[in-house]
Structures are given as C-alpha cells and as structure tokens.
Amino acid sequence: MIKEDKMKIDRKKAKEEKEIKEIKVSKKEEKEQVENSPRDSPRERESKERKLVVPGQIVVKGLDFLPGDGTIREGDNIVAIKFGLLDTVGRLVKVIPLTGAYYPKKEDIVIGKIIDITPVGWVVNFNGPSTGFITLAEGTREYVEKNADLTKYYDFGDLVAARVIAVKARTVDLSMKGPGLRKLDGGLIVKVNTHKVPRVIGRQGSMVNLIKEETNCNIAVGQNGIIWIKGRTIEAELVARNAIKQVEEFSHTNDLTEKIKELLTKSRIKEIKE
C-alpha cells in the first residue's frame, strides 16, 4: 500500500516542483486572462490552477518571492505552515486556509449576540476564540449617563454587526461605529464556513449583491461566518438562505455566479407560480 502511494507521490512531487518554477509565468497569464474575461472573478479563475499545500511543504525555492500569510522562510525556501491553497500575488506567496475555526483580524466585520451587559459595556459572543467587548464609547455616539439602562441600546440576546478594533489577550474589542454596523432586528441566521465568506461576498460584493437583488432581502455578512438575512417574506429569506448555502457548498466550482443566478431565477419563478 505504502509503496504504491510512494510511487504516485514521487511523480506528483516531480510535477509540483515543475509547477513551482512556473508560478511566475502563470501569474502573468492569469492577469491577462482576467482582463479578457471580466465576468469571472480572479478568485474563480485562479482556483483552477491553485493547488493544495500542506504544512511543512516547500512551496518556493530561491529568493525571488516573499513569504506571506501561512508561510515562513527557511533558508532559500519558502515553506507552507498551513493547509490550504497556495496563492501568489506579485512577489508575495501565501497560503489561503480552507478549513478551521474563525480567528478574528482587525477591521473584520463580525455578527454576534449580546450575552452580557456590564456597567462599562456589552459582552458579545461571535463564535470567536473568546468573547467580544463593546465599550460604552464604542457602542453608541450618545452620552451615556452613569447607571443608565444599557438594554435600551443593546439588550440581552440582541444580534449586532460589529467591527473588530483590537484582538487582545483575553478579549476582542469591538466597535459599533461605522457604516452598516447596527443592531440586526428579526431576520434569519445562516452559518457558513468562515473560509467561504469571501465567496459569499464575491468580488466587490458581486455575489451578495446578486442575492440581495434577486430576493429583495437585506443581507449582512460577518467574517465569522454568521450571515443575517431579512426579507419581506420568509419564503424570500429561505431562497436567499439556500443560495448562500449553495455558494458555500460549490464555492470551488467554476461559473459559480451563473449557477447561483440560475437557481435564484428558478426559485423566483416557482414563488410566483405558488
């Protein structure tokens, strides 16, 4: 068993090494292709050629490239330290993880639930490594009196879209200041793999805008994989939910946008008939 595998892998290895050398060339080609076919987002385009790498794998030999996220330099080599897709932007090599828990970054928008209220602010659960905290100053522009009833701003169980302003040792500081950051009333919650969020959003928001337009729903997407949908009818919300679930499931396929468009059109026809 092992022997067979080894032979296959040896062949694969040889191929990989060849691919590494070709990175520079294929990158240029990609750029041209993208310009020629504006309908395909660069992500969709590249996924055809990108490959999966594993921790410890040497992904670039030589000093022509720089190690980015998910890689380190080791002597003359760049080594992957994460499992994911190898990506090259300019001279920067990085690994885009496809699996694993959400880990917050500064400026991420997350959606979470108020689970506690303290005299100095609100505690938020957003499925992160720790809870988030919104101070009074970051929670509202209003002046808050001492001993004021904080539930009138955000109550226990409220859902909020917030921005990560700092990832600290035991907490993540969140802010409600910024466009679109607010309490999310009603609506339907969908959870998706955090690594699929960029696909749900699409290039410059193309995917989420498509779903919004076709379903007439209001949609807020958290980097933490929590998505809020609010439409006029529950049916519309479910169509949007299904579309998002489809994006998650088929994120790696080509012409994803077309597929989702088709799905949405079909659901709309069905809805009208009903």
Binding site: V54, P55, G56, G70, I81, K82, F83, L98, A101, H195
Partner: peptide, 9 residues
C-alpha cells in the same frame, strides 16, 4: 492541519 493551524511540519 485540517483545522488550519500553523505547523512547521
């Protein structure tokens, strides 16, 4: 590795 954690090997 599948959990996306950084590992040198």
């Amino acid at each position: 590795a599948h959990a996306g954690l950084p590992m040198t090997d």
